[in-house]
Amino acid sequence: MFKYVIIANDYPESLALAQKLKIILTDREMQEDIIAPEYVFVIGGDGTLLRAVNEFQDILDEVCLIVVKSGSLGFYANYDEKTVTQAIDDIINDTAHIQQLPLLEVKFNNNQIRYALNEVKIVDHVKTIRTDIYINDELLEYFRGSGLVFATSTGSTGYMRAIGGAIILSNKHKLWEMKEIAPVANSTFSTITAPLILDDSQSVILEGELIDKQIIIDTYEYEANNNLVEIKFSDKTLNLIYNHRQNQSTTAKLQTLFAYCNNVNKRGDR
């Protein structure tokens, strides 16, 4: 017997699948526990997964997540309604395959710590952000612009890609990325502007006029109340149970994602 919780988005098909899954788990004498589950079943897309990551920040490295696709395309999901029972069987039989996904650790507001699966953004779309960027306590540059974004390798396919960042394909190396958002550039001042690839030995410290700036961690927003933010590769990982029978490489997932987007654009679907 194991303890579980189900998190689903608000679409009718997802809620129906959640109810069906709860019946299956109850019939197998599994115990629902919304506070300290061992397994989190996520029904929906990547946004629903980010919600689960946010809800279980304090025990992220102690739980395993199973992402079940429901409707929309999910970059992290490789189970569906037909195969989710395989995940339950694999857990019971101790044959589940676990993929450890990288997390970024963000320290802000007097040592408050949060973890990001996709990206961290520090932004102000009204006033220019003025902050100094240090890498391992060594000054990199005096940044002036609308913001900065930091992404994991898996997160680099999302917002980071949309603003001209690099996609990190490597699975063998612990890499993450920094990119400037709308940096100031004129005849007297300019910044690096190019994406910066970092490894797990490097941390970034931002020190400057950050009070009241927005800190967005996987779509969840916080307001900075001091002038210091630290971002680094976390020692913690997200434990994702995946369907090894249908597992795709990152390259294959990218091909599927872009093919899906191209087809949507051709049809004019919304």
Rank of each mutant, 00 (worst) to 15 (best):
Y39N: 05
T131L: 01
A8H: 07
I92W: 00
V264A: 14
D27L: 12
Y115N: 09
L50Y: 03
L49A: 04
E38F: 05
D90K: 10
I92V: 15
F233A: 05
G47H: 01
Y260L: 13
N78H: 10
H173C: 04
F41L: 03
V67I: 15
E29K: 10
T250N: 14
D46W: 02
D269L: 13
T154W: 01
A224C: 14
V63K: 01
L103P: 04
I168L: 11
L104F: 04
L240T: 07
R114F: 07
I43Y: 03
F233P: 01
V106F: 02
Y76G: 07
N54T: 12
Y115D: 11
Y11P: 00
A18G: 10
L254K: 02
K127R: 14
A87M: 08
I7N: 00
Y4V: 12
K232D: 08
I122R: 06
V149A: 03
V204M: 09
T237F: 14
N78F: 08
I88S: 01
A224R: 04
R144I: 14
S153K: 12
C64F: 15
E141P: 03
V42L: 00
E230P: 03
A224F: 10
G145W: 00
V229R: 05
S201N: 14
L206V: 09
P12M: 05
T85P: 00
V40I: 15
V264I: 14
D124C: 12
I6G: 04
L15H: 03
G208F: 07
N262G: 13
T256M: 12
L101S: 05
S170E: 02
I211C: 12
N93E: 15
Q100P: 01
L228P: 02
A224W: 04
N186D: 12
S153E: 00
N263L: 13
A194L: 13
T219Q: 11
N111I: 03
A87E: 08
G74I: 00
A77E: 04
D218C: 08
T251R: 09
V63G: 02
Q19E: 13
L49E: 03
F143C: 09
N262Q: 12
E105A: 05
A116Y: 08
E207P: 00
S70D: 03
T26Y: 09
E177G: 10
